[in-house]
Computed example of a mutant assay.
Amino acid sequence: MSNKIKVMIVDDSALVRQVVSQAISRDPGIEVIGTAQDPVFALAKLNSLAPDVLVVDIEMPRMDGLTFLKRIMAERPTPVIICSSLAEKGAQVTMEALSAGAVAIITKPKMGLKNFLEDASNDIVQAIKAAARANVRALGRAVSPAAVAADVRPKLSADAVIAPASAHQGAGMYGTTDRIVAIGTSTGGTQALEAVLTRLPAVSPGIVIVQHMPERFTAMFAERLNGLCKIEVREARHGDRVIPGRALIAPGGKHMMLARSGAQYTVEVVDGPLVNRHRPSVDVLFRSCAKFAGRNALGVIMTGMGDDGARGLKEMREAGARTVAEDESTCVVFGMPKEAIRLGGVDEILPLDRIPAAILQSARG
């Protein structure tokens, strides 16, 4: 029996179906088992084809991609990657797709589509492989096994952006008792962050967040959460203060680091190379928290593919911070938390619904 990832492409453009099929079929671990020109055709094929991953457009005839996504998650939870030109503008409908359970977004332009899809084939392949590992039970509230090839891009550590904490810095002795919470997450994190942040009262410790997400999306994601939460949620700006009742989300395409200004915590938003193939990187944020907050911090690593944040969480723990990893039972992808646990960087393993209480407990020291 083949262990290839079985993919179905749903897009009203024949060109997109053809080019994406050809691009991803070059990978030996992926097989395109079917295409459909709209969701109605796709629904008729789903039971017989049983794809592991769906690649879906948003704007389609007869049924839009968002309605299709919600129906899939209700009736037959399957990892879905949105591949849409709407994503280019950071459209609200794209954020709704992430909230509804889409595990990744691929932005396709309206012009130069064929060249873009060919150039972006590696990104699409990696998104499919990450999606194939998704916990479909967590998505729908088992995917067939597949070998995941290594990304060939160089993998830099947090050293490329920020030096490790010294022994004195790691102790967290700065004459302040202000508590901060650092959260890192990736695939499935949009839903996980919503579940956590909407359960926090207005009086909560200051929070800094890295969610792996492209440029243009983080501002809209923060705006959406701000409308749902009692705390203030916004995309971080360089020099923003980290204060109780506020959560700052690292901008897509930038690294975010915790800093100190006197007795106050602030954030630095900076350029820099990809760390663990990500920008923003969770490891960069967590290392900065180890340096400048030490035992005054709580580090939380949640659902996500890969290992970004695992080493940084261990550094936080060694600096005296309390550290939490999301339990496998609620993770969409148990990658980042698993690696943090393996490295010995985790004090406590908690399901998603218990993480808000851990955050509030941290405020009491």
Score class of each variant (00 low, 15 high):
G29R: 10
V300L: 07
S84R: 08
M63K: 11
K129R: 15
L69A: 05
I5S: 12
G34F: 04
P201Y: 02
I81H: 03
L197Q: 03
D11Y: 02
F116Q: 12
V210R: 09
G344W: 08
V267Q: 06
L197W: 05
Q92P: 13
S144C: 10
M213S: 06
G170E: 00
A263N: 14
F116M: 11
D123K: 10
R17N: 06
L98N: 05
A102L: 04
G188D: 05
C331S: 09
L193N: 06
Q22V: 12
L343P: 00
M73G: 00
P79L: 04
E232G: 10
A357E: 13
G184Q: 08
K129D: 14
V269Q: 08
S21R: 11
G175D: 09
M173C: 12
V242D: 01
L113F: 02
F68D: 08
I30D: 01
S288W: 04
D57T: 00
A147N: 12
G140E: 01
D38Y: 08
L46R: 11
R199Y: 02
D64I: 00
M302E: 10
D240G: 01
M111C: 01
V55E: 05
V208E: 08
R153M: 13
N3A: 09
K254S: 13
D119H: 11
H255A: 03
V55W: 07
S25R: 00
S329F: 09
N47I: 08
H255Q: 06
V284W: 11
G312H: 03
E88R: 13
A192M: 05
G344R: 09
R133L: 15
G29T: 14
A236G: 11
V346A: 07
D240P: 00
R317K: 15
A250W: 01
N135A: 07
A319P: 05
Q361H: 11
A142C: 12
R137E: 14
L352S: 01
G335I: 08
R260L: 10
D178K: 14
A192R: 07
G170Y: 01
A132G: 15
R179F: 05
A147G: 12
R71W: 10
G112Y: 00
G294Y: 05
I5V: 15
P164M: 07
R179V: 13
V56S: 15
A142H: 14
D308H: 05
R137Y: 12
V196W: 10
R311F: 12
M213E: 04
G184H: 07
A142S: 15
P154Q: 02
M73H: 00
H255T: 05
H238G: 13
E88D: 12
Q361K: 14
L258R: 08
I243Q: 12
V19T: 12
R295Q: 13
T78M: 05
D307C: 11
A142R: 14
L352R: 03
M213C: 06
Q191L: 11
T218W: 08
E194R: 13
P214A: 12
R311C: 10
T198E: 00
V80E: 09
R26N: 13
F292G: 01
A340R: 02
M1L: 12
L86I: 04
A36D: 02
P145L: 09
V80R: 10
R279I: 05
A219E: 15
